[in-house]
Design a protein around this nucleic acid. Sequence first.
RNA 1: GCGCCCAUAGCUCAAUCGGAUAGAGCAACGGCCUUCUAAGCCGUAGGUUGCAGGUUCGAGUCCUGCUGGGCGCGCCA
Length: 561
Amino acid sequence: MKETIIALLDEALANLKQQGVLPADVAPTIKVDPTKDKAHGDYATNLALMLAKPAGKKPRELAEALVAALPESPAVRSTEIAGPGFINFFAATDAVAQVVNQVLDAGDTYGRSLIGAGQKVQVEFVSANPTGPLHVGHGRGAAIGDSICRLLDATGFDVTREFYYNDAGAQISNLALSVQARAKGLGPDDPSWPEDGYRGGYIEDVASSYLAGETVDADDRHVTAKADADDLDAIRAFAVAYLRREQDLDLKAFGVTFDVYFLESSLYDDGKVEDTVAKLVEGGHTYEEDGALWLRTTDFGDDKDRVMRKRDGGYTYFLPDVAYHLDKWQRGFKQVINEQGADHHSTVTRVRAGLQALETGIPQGWPDYVLHQMVLVTRSGVEVKLSKRAGSYVTLRDLIDEVGRDATRYFLAARRADSQLTFDIDLARSQSNDNPVYYVQYAHARVCSVLRRAEADGKPFDHALAMASLALLDADQEKALMNRLARFPEVVEHAAGNREPQQVAQYLQDLAADFHTCYNAVKVMVDDDAQRNARLALGLATRQVIRNGLDLLGVSAPEEM
RNA sequence: GCGCCCAUAGCUCAAUCGGAUAGAGCAACGGCCUUCUAAGCCGUAGGUUGCAGGUUCGAGUCCUGCUGGGCGCGCCA
């Protein structure tokens, strides 16, 4: 429908240019939007407003000329000029109703597009180090990152999901020491407990599992415990695998998977860290001071220079980060999106500066970042900090166990990443109309229920009759619902382009509202076969779009509540 | 002090590339179940979009300056 109107306007423009009303060199991008107010018709364009200046005409005058130059079309019932010079389009009912046909025809692919043209894009998210269970912040990253991947996939990109972690640094040594201490029967309050050791109760689980000689299978590694409390290397390897497996289980319970697990240690093993240092030194962007090697990141927009190699000869985390991103670039990812917590935002400038200093033709703003703000969890209006198992924070597992996967994902993905999020456990687990995820799921279940009724009444859906009867869908509520269905592909495209999954959630709320309104206003199971089947078709189309939309958020679409 | 992010109804949040009278849900009030799931619908009320300027046909949206909040400012990650 929208495309039809754009095409009509395009012709009108050409006509006016030919008549000399418009200069031949104007080539505006024609913007047609669904209206917010149905008094303004179904679609509207601001074209006359945009062209008023180059044409040297008053907007309303130009709008009249445009309307006069508009070719006839069966899809458009009428047009009007309104406000400062908007042109409103009232669509013919059967033209609007064609969307039902389109949705049913496309099925699971309705809303998908080929905009990405198969371009490779990599999304790095979660990237938690294996030193403990995933917490709510990781959950937000997982929900947003995974949904972005689904959106990119739906818009035709070739998506690689990547998880980066450190399995060899100081944090991991600390982990190994903590497990070892537990294996030797020490507790966090013992005087000989390692300084800055991990105090959480899960360390004890790792230790007992190690001592029992268990085997753990994570997605990317398999280790059998040596059960020797003196072998720190064996403990380290086991602990990393153990916690990786825990994280995998958390992510699996959350419906999130990865294609690549990338180890920071591999950057050292493959000489990529050294290569990066060499390149930076060669480029003349480094200097030595106080026994350390510095990168002049201030040449590339950073507010102070950064140490690359410490006085003790080790590298700061910043260097492998640069090496890692160089590796991403060399793997051919022209588009990379890093989803991280905003508490790490200082790395953005730093990593980009490091990449610029390499002078390998990496664009200035590469890679993209999506940073999510902190998550505060409340129960009964009070902030929740303690967890039985971890002793220090709310784990993702706790949350999924308590409120369920669907509500957890929905809550974490339904708000803009850059707004601070309060996760209200009471609200998320309430099985009531307070809870937005149920509102959407209920709409889906309701359609299913009507279809079950149709079957039970011996009046199953007749596709051919329905398609021939779509013009009967002429109630205001039905038109509103169909116009909403027609917007879905655009919503997906926009949400993908802006990396904003919450737009899908918002759309689903609106769609569900339109459906519920329709459901209450228009009875589906009427005696008239044509009428009934047209309405069943609209229900089926709605169900399909809800399903497709929820899938983009990783939320299930239940057949009954 | 410096940098990044945020500020929209009592509460939680939307608002497509800058478009018309800023929208939902919750909470409040009044209606709707002998009819397909009332986890629903209809209606009422609720706003100087933090403040002050600027840009233009038009600003919640862009620019400048304030105020308030979050995060960061390590030879930690």
